[in-house]
Structures are given as C-alpha cells and as structure tokens.
C-alpha cells in the first residue's frame, strides 16, 4: 500500500525549511537589519556554514547582503527582502496548516 502525501507538504518551501536558514529568516523578519556577527552568535553556526546559507538565501532573493564600514571596521549587514518576507509568511501558514491539521 502506498502512502499518499497530504497536499501542503509539496508546497513547503524547502529553502526556508532547512533549520539553520529558517532561524536566519525568522530573526531577520523581526528586525530592520542585523549584522553578520549577531546572526552568527544567534544561530551558533560557523562562519563558513553561515556564509553558505546566506549565499543560498541571497541567490533566492530572500535576503539582501550589504558590505559596509563602521569607522574602519568592515561590516556585513543583512536584511530580509520583500520576497523573503512573503515566503516566510507563507511557510508559517503552511506549517501551521500541516501540523495543526487546519
């Protein structure tokens, strides 16, 4: 007997669903912008790992990455893009529907 998957599962955005990226997007969705160091400390990811996730999110148009300077200190500023906001909201609704059976 084959098991039939429920409809909402196929619609889940796998890019956001990955736990580390979900954490990054969830945090960025609540702030105007945050820097690389803050996101790294909150997620506990290594620099290489975090950069890889940020790269994927940026390529999908979910976040914007800006290189800047504060005095002489280089900063990587991250902010969620409009597309990322919409995708995150949709993801929350889909997961809510899936887990709560709504």
């Amino acid at each position: 007997m084959t098991h039939k998957e429920p409809g909402p599962l196929s619609e889940i955005d796998r890019l956001i669903h990955e736990p580390a990226r979900l954490l990054i997007v969830a945090i960025l969705s609540e702030v105007k912008e945050a820097d690389y160091l803050y996101i790294q400390q909150e997620t506990g990811l290594t620099k290489g790992n975090l950069s890889s996730h940020l790269d994927k999110l940026e390529k999908a148009g979910y976040i914007e990455i800006e290189k800047a300077f504060r005095g002489k200190i280089p900063l990587t500023i991250l902010r969620i893009a409009r597309r990322g906001s919409v995708a995150f909201k949709a993801y929350r609704n889909q997961m809510g529907a899936l887990l709560n059976g709504r």
Partner: peptide, 28 residues
C-alpha cells in the same frame, strides 16, 4: 522532516507538535 534536532529544539514545541516561531522571532 519537521522534527530534526535543531528544528525541534529551536522552532517546534515538541510536546504539542506546534511550530513556535514566535519565540524565535522574539530573540532580537
């Protein structure tokens, strides 16, 4: 898919299987 360790620890309320993204969003 929904209860990998990091997801379960940070995002999901394991006792009720409800996503708890609100708590994550309050971190900032």
């Amino acid at each position: 898919l929904t209860h990998t360790s990091l997801y379960g620890r940070l995002v999901c309320n394991m006792s009720e299987n409800l996503p708890d993204l609100t708590q994550v969003a309050r971190r900032p």
